[in-house]
Design a protein around this nucleic acid. Structure first.
Lengths: 99, 99
DNA sequence: GCATCATTTAGATGATTATCTAAATATCGA
DNA sequence: TCGATATTTAGATAATCATCTAAATGATGC
């Protein structure tokens, strides 16, 4: 179960992750996605209701998280299902901890 | 020997750290400071020579790192001595790993 | 005090980016 | 197919921020 397979981050991805995490709202969104993972699906709707942002803005943030590799999107009909890529997050933390 | 005393990050500091780390150049600077720690002092000059930036820009970045609590500055006459606050960095990583 | 070296501050500029509205696309159920 | 729901795209705007130059501050040694 989530045996951290060795994830290798390119410099570019490392930067993308750092930027993705630097936006407070994005961090909150990521946390939300992570917290809901247990229950399975996590659509945009639930997130949007918490934050006071438009669907377009949320879409933008989610794309940033996805581009950075921090979340994966699986589509299930109308809604999307998001999940945190903890392997990637931990690879990032691992690299940072080397400082 | 750096027995990690419990550092508590405010939400604000957490954000400041994330933003400080999100700038590639700032990350490089922080890494440089960390790597030179063993030899003791780490002035701006050495950093500035590596990166191709003005003294003013470097000063700006260092202030961001300091404001975030990631580095401390001690003045020694003309030059400054920088050191990484690993306790703070690890508190940040710790919090991120909770996602 | 003056010249020099190290850093900071002020102020400006350009790039990046978070956000919005409006329109487009996609999926489902009736 | 139509209408409703969910998400994306396009395009615009405003805020943030990295960077610079020029000037200011501060410390050292002559």
């Amino acid at each position: 179960m989530s045996t951290s397979k060795p994830v290798r981050l390119t410099d570019k991805q490392f930067e993308q992750i750092a930027k993705a995490l630097a936006e407070p709202r994005r961090y909150q969104i990521l946390k939300k996605i992570g917290s809901c993972k247990k229950e399975g699906s996590m659509g945009c709707q639930a997130i949007q209701e918490e934050h006071n942002i438009s669907a377009a803005t949320l879409s933008h943030h989610i794309k940033e998280l996805e581009t950075a590799g921090l979340v994966t999107i699986t589509r299930e009909g109308k809604t999307m299902s998001l999940s945190v890529q903890r392997d990637v997050l931990h690879a990032y933390l691992e690299k940072l901890s080397k400082i």
